[in-house]
């Protein structure tokens, strides 16, 4: 699977969970790897690109999560 495709899957997954359940990096790696038959390391590399670009960010609320940055911070 192309890197960009994995990135889209990850972003959609995070977007869909907004307001329902905060996802941890581990949750995303597990879910995308299982659902799409990709190696965890590949998902991790794609996620890292998203975070390095600021498309997704790490947040902290008693634990660390991956979220879409709040509008005012963009």
């Amino acid at each position: 699977m192309e890197r960009e495709e994995i990135k889209k899957i990850i972003y959609d997954l995070v977007e869909k969970s907004v307001g329902k359940k905060k996802l941890k990096q581990g949750d995303i790696l597990k879910k995308v790897a299982a659902d799409h038959g990709v190696e965890k390391d590949e998902v991790k590399a794609a996620l890292r690109e998203l975070v390095d670009a600021g498309t997704l960010i790490f947040t902290y609320f008693g634990g660390s999560y991956i979220e879409i940055p709040p509008k005012e911070a963009v």
Partner: peptide
């Protein structure tokens, strides 16, 4: 705590 950090890091 809130949402702050340096780009690329969650720590």
């Amino acid at each position: 705590g809130g949402i702050v950090g340096v780009r690329g890091y969650g720590s």
